[in-house]
Simulated scan of single mutants.
Amino acid sequence: MSVTTLGIKLDGVTRARLGVVSKKLDRTPHWFMKKAILALIEKVEAGAGIEVLVPVEALAQDTMRHSIARRHAVN
């Protein structure tokens, strides 16, 4: 199995929160992020839609760079 490193941009506040919750669980931030990503993948694979993952109110604030369909519609 090939392994590729992916990057994620986090603001300072989110990065600090990640550090706090990771320490609280006695785990690394990498472990926490990987578990969170895998949990979301499993939800979507089980049939969850975007409305299950993101509150409907927040969807209106979604920017074009976060929606593949919107991004392709503009190009």
Rank of each mutant, 00 (worst) to 15 (best):
residue 3 V to Y: 06
residue 4 T to M: 13
residue 4 T to R: 11
residue 5 T to F: 08
residue 6 L to Y: 13
residue 6 L to R: 13
residue 6 L to W: 09
residue 7 G to T: 11
residue 7 G to R: 06
residue 7 G to V: 03
residue 9 K to N: 11
residue 9 K to P: 00
residue 10 L to E: 04
residue 10 L to V: 07
residue 12 G to F: 03
residue 16 A to Y: 02
residue 17 R to G: 04
residue 18 L to G: 00
residue 18 L to N: 00
residue 19 G to D: 02
residue 19 G to A: 03
residue 19 G to V: 01
residue 19 G to E: 02
residue 20 V to L: 09
residue 21 V to Q: 02
residue 21 V to P: 00
residue 22 S to L: 04
residue 22 S to C: 08
residue 23 K to G: 06
residue 23 K to T: 02
residue 23 K to Y: 01
residue 24 K to I: 03
residue 24 K to H: 13
residue 24 K to T: 09
residue 26 D to G: 02
residue 27 R to S: 05
residue 28 T to W: 02
residue 31 W to G: 01
residue 31 W to M: 03
residue 31 W to A: 05
residue 31 W to Q: 08
residue 32 F to W: 06
residue 34 K to Q: 13
residue 35 K to Q: 15
residue 35 K to F: 11
residue 35 K to H: 12
residue 36 A to G: 14
residue 36 A to Q: 07
residue 36 A to I: 07
residue 38 L to A: 11
residue 39 A to P: 00
residue 39 A to S: 14
residue 39 A to C: 06
residue 40 L to C: 09
residue 41 I to N: 03
residue 44 V to C: 03
residue 45 E to S: 05
residue 46 A to V: 02
residue 47 G to L: 02
residue 47 G to Q: 03
residue 47 G to H: 01
residue 47 G to W: 01
residue 48 A to D: 07
residue 48 A to E: 08
residue 49 G to Q: 08
residue 49 G to D: 10
residue 50 I to F: 11
residue 52 V to H: 15
residue 53 L to A: 04
residue 54 V to A: 10
residue 55 P to G: 03
residue 55 P to K: 13
residue 55 P to A: 13
residue 57 E to R: 14
residue 57 E to S: 12
residue 57 E to G: 07
residue 58 A to W: 08
residue 58 A to Y: 06
residue 58 A to I: 09
residue 60 A to M: 11
residue 60 A to H: 13
residue 60 A to C: 09
residue 61 Q to A: 13
residue 61 Q to Y: 07
residue 62 D to P: 04
residue 62 D to T: 15
residue 63 T to A: 07
residue 64 M to S: 10
residue 65 R to K: 15
residue 66 H to L: 13
residue 67 S to G: 09
residue 68 I to K: 12
residue 68 I to P: 00
residue 69 A to Y: 09
residue 69 A to P: 01
residue 70 R to E: 10
residue 71 R to M: 14
residue 71 R to P: 00
residue 72 H to R: 14
residue 72 H to P: 00
residue 73 A to C: 13
residue 73 A to R: 12
residue 74 V to K: 10
